[in-house]
Nucleic acid binder design. Structure first.
Length: 485
RNA sequence: GGCGCGUUGACGGAACGGUUACGUGGAGGUCUGCAAAACCUUUUAAAUGGGUUCGACUCCCAUACGUGCCUCCA
């Protein structure tokens, strides 16, 4: 099956065809680094990691950009207009730069813990200020911008297809708007490309506004300091690194109506080209049936999970159990179910240390269930990243393997299956299931001897010693099999 | 007020117009020196009401409930 993806642009699941044969350019909207990422944030990154792995398994060379938003992402609550980074800095008594650095590092550490493939380009908004200003300049020269008191704005009425991507009803929104909008804006949907630092205010992060971007002097000041609007960075980074048109752009569904709509407007207005051929959006994760929000305190972090005894890979398994377009529900009970499933898989993976590859010669896909299922896993993922289906077929083959005696298992084929699962799903089954040491093996052999002599007391003692080492044994018709406790 | 999405068994969660999803948990059983694991069985599955159809969890309509977004909130 060729790769099919659901494209938000067309609202259809369609075959994937890259611009350039054999190569995929991919942009993933990354985090705003003002706090620890929570489980909902990570869910998206896990799903897009599966996308990358699936693309690679289809033979594509993937070049991927992920941004780290370290400036310009404003809050909208009571203290409207404030920058999240600056706010975080005030909260913690540090500078915005310190805040960005700290949480960016934490994010990168999380990528490592979850076994996510690191994007080729992880770039920070503050490293791309000149490119962002260039983009504003181009838009200004083409007549898409205007200046008001607090910044330079994009005139969405100049981009006739503005409402198409999110299927917005701009008139209806105008009528029903809850929040009073900036009266100086020409259209309610217009958004800031570049904001001016308010008078009598000193930001940690600000840059001089090039004079050629200004329609008129601001309050007679010689130097006008400012900072980029939040949407600008993604367009500037994507186009300057990957080109005017990219293959795939991913993000959370919340980005459809505003952020991605604005990205499309400013990018396509500047370049005159299609910005991205495919747009993929992950649904949001709920916690205990409700939205994740700061005020509820339900935005669990990886550290919160670790405190309760759950590993990042347990969480990865939990996420893969539901489809990226499905609204997931996180509870610790469900996470425990995922952990149990993963532990079960690890014990199947451990069978490779105990089986032989005597059957390996002349093995074909038809002969061996382990090899046969590899194709099924790829087919599932090629069907719009259907990870739950992939897990299902793995469960089936694992169940099949377990129900047979060891001598029916081909360790060579099992190894190949495990490698494939690790490549496609990143569950690190091989890395987390080392062989037992020689001393432990000796204990198992001694116990088998004791059992042959029907010396139950000795064999039970040996079993206890093995348990203390974290190894459980089960006695089958053709010998003892060990597992991790 | 506007626009949208969802509602599957104890819990999570897929596919599919007609066949046991699968996983986790509970109960019983087989096997076993005892265990464990595995296997088998079981744990009334499709919010409600209509319709289309030979046949609907799967398509259409309505109702209820839940939920998301509405201009800088993952």
């Amino acid at each position: 099956m060729t790769l099919q993806l659901h494209n938000t642009l067309t609202r259809k699941t369609e075959p994937f065809t890259p611009i350039q044969e054999g190569k995929v350019t991919l942009y993933t909207c990354g985090p705003t680094v003002y706090d620890f990422p929570h489980v909902g944030n990570w869910a998206g990154y896990i799903y897009w990691d599966i996308l990358v792995r699936t693309l690679i398994s289809n033979g594509y060379n993937v070049e991927r950009v992920m941004n780290i938003t370290d400036v310009g992402h404003l809050v909208s609550d009571a203290d409207e207009g404030e920058d999240k980074l600056e706010k975080g800095a005030r909260r913690e008594g540090k500078s915005a730069w310190d805040i960005a650095e700290f949480y960016a590092e934490d994010f990168l550490a999380g990528i490592e813990k979850l076994g996510l493939i690191v994007p080729e380009h992880i770039v920070r908004a503050t490293e791309f200020i000149p490119q962002q200003l260039d983009l504003v300049r181009t838009l200004k020269q083409k007549g898409f911008t205007y200046q008001i008191d607090d910044g330079i704005y994009f005139d969405t009425s100049k981009f006739p297809t503005y409402a198409d991507f999110a299927e917005l009803d701009l008139e209806a929104q105008k009528a029903g708007a809850r929040v009073a909008f900036n009266a100086e804006k020409r259209n309610p949907s217009d958004f800031a490309l570049w904001k001016f630092t308010p008078k009598n205010e000193k930001r940690d992060m600000e840059w001089e506004t090039p004079t050629d971007l200004l329609d008129e002097p601001v309050s007679g000041e010689a130097k006008v300091m400012g900072f980029p609007g939040w949407h600008l960075e993604c367009s500037a980074m994507a186009m300057s690194i990957l080109g005017d048109t990219i293959d795939i752009h991913t993000g959370g569904i919340d980005h459809i109506p505003v952020h991605h709509t604005n990205e499309i407007a400013q990018s396509e207005s500047a370049s005159g080209q299609i910005f991205s051929h495919y747009w993929l959006h992950n649904n949001h994760l709920k916690v205990n049936g409700t939205k994740i929000s700061k005020s509820l305190g339900n935005g669990f972090t990886l550290q919160n999970l670790a405190d309760r005894g759950f590993s990042p890979l347990d969480y990865r398994m939990f996420i893969l159990q539901s489809h990226y377009s499905n609204e997931g529900n996180f509870t610790f009970e469900n996470l425990a179910a995922a952990r149990n499933r993963l532990n079960h898989w690890r014990n199947v993976a451990a069978l490779r240390h105990q089986a032989h590859d005597t059957l390996a010669q002349n093995k074909t896909k038809e002969d061996d269930p382990s090899l046969a299922v590899i194709g099924l896993i790829k087919t599932a993922l090629n069907d719009n990243l259907n990870s739950p289906e992939a897990l299902r077929v793995i469960d089936e083959v694992f169940s099949h393997l377990e129900s047979h005696n060891l001598d029916r298992i081909d360790s060579h084929a099992l190894n190949q299956l495990l490698e494939t699962i690790d490549q496609l799903l990143g569950l690190q089954l091989i890395a987390t299931t080392p062989d037992i040491d020689d001393e432990t093996k000796q204990l198992i052999i001694q116990r088998e001897r004791a059992r042959e002599e029907k010396n139950w007391q000795t064999s039970d003692e040996l079993r206890d010693r093995l348990t203390a080492k974290g190894i459980a044994v089960r006695d089958t018709q053709d010998g003892t099999v060990w597992e991790y406790v």
